[in-house]
Design a protein around this nucleic acid. Structure first.
Lengths: 151, 151
DNA sequence: CTACAAGTTCAAGTAAACTTGAAATCAAGG
DNA sequence: CCTTGATTTCAAGTTTACTTGAACTTGTAG
């Protein structure tokens, strides 16, 4: 009984397309052993790694960021519970921040935008402190222009 | 006193780059009147529209989706509080779903990934019901493969 | 009137995250 | 051995959301 997975097996089990898996390997997010033929073989541990990758993406992280997170895992043994905890621990804070922003957005939709009583220049509902923002190449943030007060 | 704004005034007040504003206009998200010279003039109402656009983007919506939301606004008068409420109302639910997903992710990071006791194939922490997903062209979701139970 | 800042269009470039297609090789069943 | 399906690499294409640059026209202050 083979304990390793082919690329299509891994794809089926993870829900991540084979082409994406090759891309992830190329970008250094996952690894594979090669058979003499050149065919990839993945260990089952890769499944957990993939779960982490998919989760992190849902949090709005780029593959580059995810990669550097994954590099914090030990390489001398297959990462286990405690190893993953080290990574995921600080993430709770990250998630909480994002949740807080969503709460602000929710309030903002109800108040800032709807009622119109609030001047948009002073609106700091969107990501007020965190400049790093994570939702890809979107527009820039609503930061307000301190010097203009004529509206 | 002019009540309309030039593209750079609008840019400064909204924090959205002028090039992005032209792009939004091209894509039908905002409108402008043109002077004889061809120069754009935006009404102040565009500021609120932009706030909505930026907020919606932070929620992970694409410009196409945002555009179709904006098309629900009345065109016979400048949208006011009640009009915006009609749009933003249903969004609270959307935001709540997203928050709920983040809560699941938080739990998932602690349990599903870290402890490893949970087989990834059964993990539905990520966006279990909502197929529309909104974080851009990411990978596909972790949906689990009902038929494979050999792990 | 003359600068110079601000505005215009249009084409092309960028970045991320993949997908697709071509051409070739590998593995497994009959 | 033959065929079929799985894999491989590599280059090129796709989508979203913009940005940048070139070439040119307007608006405004002095």
């Amino acid at each position: 009984m083979e304990t390793t997975l082919t690329i299509n097996q891994l794809s089926r089990r993870s829900g991540v397309a084979a082409s994406a898996l090759r891309y992830y390997e190329e970008r250094g997010l996952i690894q594979s052993e090669r058979r003499g033929s050149g065919h990839r073989r993945f260990t089952r541990a890769t499944l957990r790694r993939l779960a982490f990758i998919v989760f992190a993406q849902r949090l709005g992280m780029s593959l580059a960021e995810i990669r550097s997170e994954l590099e914090k895992l030990p390489t001398d043994h297959v990462p286990k519970g405690a190893d993953w905890s080290l990574l995921s621990g600080p993430w709770s804070a990250r998630i909480d921040e994002r949740i807080a922003e969503l709460e602000r957005l929710k309030t903002g939709l109800a108040q800032c935008i709807s009622c119109g009583c609030l001047s948009l220049e002073y609106c700091r509902l969107v990501n007020p402190h965190d400049k790093a923002g994570a939702l890809g190449p979107g527009p820039h943030y609503w930061l307000g222009d301190q010097s203009s007060t004529d509206d």
